[in-house]
Simulated scan of single mutants.
Amino acid sequence: MMRLLVILLSFLTIPIIHAQTLDSVIAPLASKSLLLDITVINQSNLVVVGERGHILLSTDGVQWQQAQVPVQVTLTAVYFTDEDNGWAVGHDATILSSKDGGLSWQVQQHLPQVEKPLLDVLFLDKDNGIAIGSYGLFYRTNDGGEHWAIEHHNELLYPEDQTYLAELKLQDEEAYLDVQSSILPHFNRVVADGRTLYLAGEMGLIAKSNDFGVSWEKLDEIYPGSFYDINRTQEGNLLVVGLRGHIFRSLRNGTPWQAIDSDVTGLLSAIVLSDDQRIFILGNNGILLESRDDGATFTKHLQKDGKALIAGVWYENKIIAVSDVGIKTINLTK
């Protein structure tokens, strides 16, 4: 039975901070720089984010236009609810928003004093969203990002850490606040599966929520290392990937998990689902794995340049991926 402790919420509104931000530089080689996430809007328009505040747009996956962006911090993730409304997050707890399909961006939050990166962002609709990151960084908005409130989800700690925090709060409020900001694991990825959210993170963290992240239930620990992506396959099973080539597959919504042989030892960073029932997993050292049996087995297609494939989307019968050397197009015929 799910056991949820009271979530420590701070309802203080986080102010929009524009100080110390600089517009990103329009760079001719931006499409070949370190890029960290990619999304496709309505199966047509592509949006990519990466280092130095770079955001790139494309309508064909070949020609890329760099957007004007009001920050130079590294951007780690991007998400659109529809063809107009999107958000990007990154270092310094930065959150940007766009209302024109990514052509222009505005700062909703920029907090250099936080000194932590946000690593993913997800919206239920154009008003309700969450942004997650390192050391349990977690922000929520219910007004499209005009205001963001921080949350501390201590139910995702080990029981002994929960007890320690509760005791520390009674003894030393200042020490409690300091520990609270660093004791939670990194939250690497959050995905929506209907009304359920799944969270993947550091120290083997896998959790689910049925109330858009207000409360979380940890799933059984299956591996002590970090996970970087989780998704439901085309046939309805769960797949999670992480460090040292680890892949786990669940036929029953998170329990039990079956270890899948990847035949690689590099970090696995992203799961890409095709529209022809194939599953691809991207990773470091040019790792590209393909499954044609819903994730039960995988075949290796190692990329010759050995560069990390960080994230990707299925677009017009091919993979458009981002890497530490920019945008890569990968054709794998069936």
Rank of each mutant, 00 (worst) to 15 (best):
M2V: 13
M2S: 15
M2D: 13
F11L: 06
L12I: 10
T13S: 12
T13G: 04
I17H: 12
V25N: 08
I26Y: 08
I26A: 13
P28Q: 05
P28R: 00
L29A: 03
S31Y: 02
L34K: 01
T39A: 09
T39P: 02
V40W: 02
N45S: 15
L57T: 15
G61V: 05
A67C: 10
P70G: 14
Q72L: 10
T74G: 07
L75G: 00
L75P: 04
V78W: 00
V78G: 05
E83G: 05
D84C: 00
W87M: 09
V89N: 04
H91A: 04
L96I: 01
L96K: 06
K99T: 11
D100F: 05
G101S: 04
G101V: 04
G102C: 08
G102M: 02
Q106C: 06
V107K: 00
L111T: 07
P117H: 08
P117Y: 13
L119H: 05
L122A: 06
I130D: 14
I132R: 12
F138L: 09
Y139H: 04
Y139E: 11
R140F: 01
N142K: 10
N142Y: 13
N142Q: 09
N142W: 10
D143S: 06
G144E: 02
A149N: 13
H152I: 05
E155T: 15
E155G: 13
D161E: 15
T163A: 06
Y164W: 09
L165P: 14
E167S: 08
Q171K: 15
A175V: 07
D178V: 12
S181K: 05
V190S: 05
V190W: 03
V191Y: 01
D193K: 00
G194T: 08
M203D: 09
N210S: 06
N210P: 03
F212K: 03
S215N: 14
S215I: 02
W216T: 10
P224C: 11
G225Q: 14
Q234I: 13
V240W: 11
L243Y: 04
S250E: 11
R252V: 03
N253W: 08
T255W: 00
D261W: 08
S262W: 09
V264A: 00
T265R: 10
A270N: 09
I271A: 10
V272H: 07
L273Y: 06
Q277A: 05
I279V: 15
N285K: 03
S291N: 11
D293W: 02
A296F: 04
T297Y: 06
F298Q: 07
F298D: 00
T299I: 08
H301M: 02
D305E: 12
D305V: 08
L309R: 10
G312T: 06
G312C: 09
W314R: 01
D324G: 03
D324R: 14
G326V: 11
N331F: 10
